[in-house]
């Protein structure tokens, strides 16, 4: 057994898993409350990465500010999408929300493709996080360790806020029964807007984190979003903890597969999904409805 290759693949898997977790967390929160399958999540992730790249290229704004500003900008775009478009579809079958956000994805990707072409734009690793360390068998670039750490931190913090605080209690109650919560006097339509904006900002945040790791391209989100949807389904639709744990776990499973049988690495997630759905149709952490 080649420990060096194995741990190298597991590390790559962990990094991919970090992005799966960040993205599926946002998807799960949005699906839970709004009952919208937000197919645009990948496009908004891409827009986060592009926003960071554009800030650096045109405005000279560095990584740290981009980490704050890009999610804010994309979050505002999300708020506009929710207010102008998604809002009209509540109460309809959630296929309509899926179709709308799929359409938005095509438009966004088309626009960026038109403006910047298909070739990747590279985004530099911030100076402070350059270099790497040797960890036993593997050489780990510091930036990648940073990605894993920040992702776990953000996911844990989100989980804590949702499960343990009053703010989270509103989200949990709204996820269970939004109409009743509104009949108790809570401004649920406003909660929907804020939640969508937050979920989308989280996608953009992941996009900025990803910019120095992957190439910034118009299609960077669409290759990821399919896997992320599988993660959400495996974790259990709408389950917060489920999406975080499953995101990181599936990254590792992918890494392991790359080591054991590389040909299967791009389908292993879907094989896992099929098996989980056969045994537990509501997903690993999902509640049967």
């Amino acid at each position: 057994m080649n420990l060096q290759a194995l741990s190298g693949q597991l590390l790559v898997g962990l990094i991919n898993g970090s992005f799966y977790a960040l993205l599926s967390l946002g998807l799960a929160i949005i699906f839970g409350l709004l009952n919208v399958v937000n197919f645009a999540h990948g496009a908004l992730y891409m827009m986060g990465a592009f926003a960071a790249w554009m800030m650096a290229t045109y405005l000279g704004i560095g990584y740290w500010w981009a980490l704050l500003l890009a999610p804010a900008v994309v979050g505002v775009i999300g708020v506009v999408i929710e207010r102008l478009l998604l809002r009209r579809l509540y109460g309809l079958d959630n296929l309509y929300g899926l179709l709308l956000t799929f359409g938005l994805t095509l438009i966004a990707e088309g626009l960026f493709h038109h403006a910047y072409g298909n070739s990747g734009n590279s985004y530099p690793v911030p100076e402070f996080l350059q270099g790497g360390v040797r960890l036993g068998f593997v050489y780990m670039p510091i930036y990648r360790g940073w990605v894993v750490g920040v992702s776990i931190f953000v996911c844990t913090l989100s989980w804590y806020v949702i499960e343990q605080t009053k703010l989270g209690a509103y989200l949990r109650a709204g996820t269970e029964n939004p109409k009743l919560l509104q009949a108790f006097g809570v401004n649920v339509p406003l909660m929907f807007t804020i939640t969508y904006g937050f979920g989308v900002a989280l996608a953009a945040f992941a996009g900025v984190m990803a910019a120095p790791v992957y190439q910034v391209t118009p299609l960077m989100g669409s290759s990821l979003v399919i896997v992320v949807f599988a993660v959400v389904v495996i974790g259990g639709m709408g389950s917060i903890a489920g999406s975080i744990v499953t995101g990181l776990g599936l990254g590792l499973v992918e890494g392991l597969t790359k080591y054991l049988y590389p040909q299967a690495s791009s389908v292993v997630v879907f094989v896992v999904m099929a098996i989980v759905l056969l045994i537990r149709p509501a997903g690993l952490f999902g509640r049967e409805r």
Partner: peptide
């Protein structure tokens, strides 16, 4: 104050969270 049929208790909230989540009217 509305007390719905079948009580409408939020299952994922603790009893105290159920008590305090309603805004003052």
């Amino acid at each position: 104050g509305y007390c719905p049929e079948e009580r409408g208790i939020f299952a994922s909230l603790s009893a105290e969270e159920n008590l305090t989540i309603l805004p003052t009217v």
